[in-house]
């Protein structure tokens, strides 16, 4: 039988893998993909909690509603971040985040 802990552990593993990608990669596009993985880990957690909520609870669909918002904001964030990466590539001819130090003093 599936338990809530299963969802939580899979979500934790997905989050940790995404965090490793964010910290260890140097390509901006790959960092963005890893951020998407982390957002999906949060979604798995929310869906798991929504499925195991009390049936009498009037706000038990709230977990799924928050997932809808997370997916919306993730799409907006991804579009904006890719636009920034394209501008960056046009101006500096690189997507390596180590070489982007315009704001570093």
């Amino acid at each position: 039988m599936i338990e809530l802990a299963h969802f939580q552990i899979v979500a934790a593993a997905l989050f940790a893998i995404g965090l490793y990608g964010v910290l260890s990669r140097r390509s901006a596009v790959l960092i963005l993909m890893s951020i998407e993985l982390m957002l999906n880990a949060v979604n798995v957690n929310l869906i798991g909690f929504a499925a195991f909520a009390d049936i009498a609870d009037p706000s038990r669909a709230l977990g799924q509603v928050i997932v809808v918002f997370v997916i919306t904001i993730a799409a907006a964030e991804l579009a904006l971040a890719l636009a920034i990466i394209l501008r960056l590539y046009r101006n500096r001819s690189t997507v390596n985040v180590d070489e982007v130090n315009l704001m570093k003093w």
Binding site: M1, I2, L4, F49, A50, A51, F52, A53, D54, I55, R60, A61, G63, Q64
Partner: peptide
């Protein structure tokens, strides 16, 4: 939580 998952 409840014992088993239930559909929303």
């Amino acid at each position: 939580t409840v014992a088993d998952r239930q559909a929303v």
